Amino acid sequence: MTEQQFIPQPYSKTVSEGRVSWESPSNIALVKYWGKKKNQIPENPSISFTLSKCKTITTVTFNKKVSAGDFDFEVFLDGEHKPDFQPKIETFFNRVVEYLPFLKNYSFKIETTNTFPHSSGIASSASGMSALALCLMSIEKQLLSEEISEAFFYTKASFLARLGSGSACRSLEGDLIVWGANTTVQDGSDLFGVKYPFPVHEHFKGYQDTILLVDKGEKQVSSTVGHNLMYGHPFAAERFKQAHANLEALKPVLESGDLDAFIALVESEALTLHAMMMTSMPYFILMKPNTLEVINKIWAFRKTTGLHVGFTLDAGANVHVLYPKHEQEAVLDFIKSELAKYCQNDQFICDEVGFGAQELTECKLI
């Protein structure tokens, strides 16, 4: 599909006011996206597990204005007015207004809450922007005279979410989502995420992700800044080629259930992501000392026990401990006894692979 296909026909219905709620999960990339072109186009393809419990719940209340004009909205996080979120939403609205022309006709109250700490490397922007995009699509659906298919609804929502936060396009569905044009998944697109279309071994069904909250604070370098530092990066071109190769290499691994090969590829991807940060100019480090302590503990435990426990990292200090469901009991015991002490206040989140967003309150007209 092209961008033009997401521009709607003139709205034929009038809606005065209403409310809609969606929850959308975060996701954790296995092959990482790092570096983007204009309009949130990725420099390389990525693939992610959709999570289940780490999610954003967003409610949008809308009222028709007397006359169209500038964007009119307020944002609330956990019930608290957040004026500092205004610029990000303003940028998002400016990017998507061509595809959602009703945005200037309404006033919006955007209420959002996360089930996990904001801005700590658990991709809150991914879950937040995907939840908001779904709410806006539900509103647009009320304004159209012709029915739109569920497939188009989710594809356009993914397209819109990408314009708010690139990885948000991978949060709407599950359980494995690919984003970015590539030769492995023929339907892969730079414009939106698509479901991984190939066979996946039973080992990866219900895969566990326990997120160790090593550092719940704000990152000192935002992901947006980090992506921009890939321009002129001395290793960028090779990294982009590596991501394509790793996506191709992951295909037989997912089909065969080769957990050792899966761990090796995913851990390498995580460390490569942070190597790009450490070799950019200016360089920066998002890992903390306890991040490295946890990684070394995981390696030692895996070698001693033979259990298939690995890790990945997002753009932050927290560690995602990945393992198959059938090894859950032993790995959780290890996490509680050996790894929790490296987390702030011994905190960690037990999550697993999920299947995407859910509409909590159907778009209701008031």
Rank of each mutant, 00 (worst) to 15 (best):
E3S: 15
E3L: 15
I7L: 11
P10F: 06
V15Y: 08
V15L: 09
V20P: 03
V20D: 02
W22A: 05
E23V: 13
S26P: 12
S26H: 15
A29M: 04
V31R: 00
V31G: 03
K32V: 00
Y33G: 07
K36H: 01
Q40P: 00
P42W: 00
S46Y: 06
C54Y: 03
K55F: 07
K55C: 05
T56F: 01
T59A: 04
T61E: 15
F62E: 04
A68I: 13
A68K: 14
D72L: 08
L77K: 11
H81R: 10
D84Y: 13
Q86K: 14
E90S: 12
T91K: 14
R95W: 01
P101G: 05
F102R: 06
L103Y: 05
N105V: 08
Y106A: 02
T115C: 08
H118T: 15
S127F: 00
S130V: 03
A131C: 02
M137G: 01
I139C: 00
E140A: 07
L144G: 07
I148P: 06
F153R: 04
F153E: 04
K156V: 11
A157G: 06
S158K: 04
L163F: 06
G166F: 00
A168Y: 04
C169L: 13
C169R: 14
S171M: 05
W179L: 07
G180T: 07
A181Y: 13
N182C: 05
T183M: 06
T184V: 14
L191K: 13
F192K: 02
F192V: 02
K195N: 08
F198L: 11
H203V: 15
H203C: 10
K205Y: 11
K205S: 09
L213D: 03
L213M: 11
V214E: 06
G217I: 05
G217N: 12
E218G: 10
Q220Y: 12
S223T: 12
S223Q: 10
V225L: 15
Y231P: 01
P234D: 09
Q242D: 14
Q242W: 13
A243W: 01
A243R: 13
V253M: 03
L259M: 11
F262E: 08
I263S: 08
I263R: 01
L271C: 09
L271R: 12
L271V: 15
T272R: 15
L273G: 02
H274R: 07
M277C: 13
M277V: 11
W299A: 14
K303Q: 11
T304F: 04
T305W: 00
L307M: 13
L307Q: 09
H308C: 03
F311Y: 11
N318S: 02
Q328G: 08
D333M: 14
I335F: 01
K336G: 09
L339V: 02
K341Y: 04
C343L: 02
Q344T: 12
D346H: 12
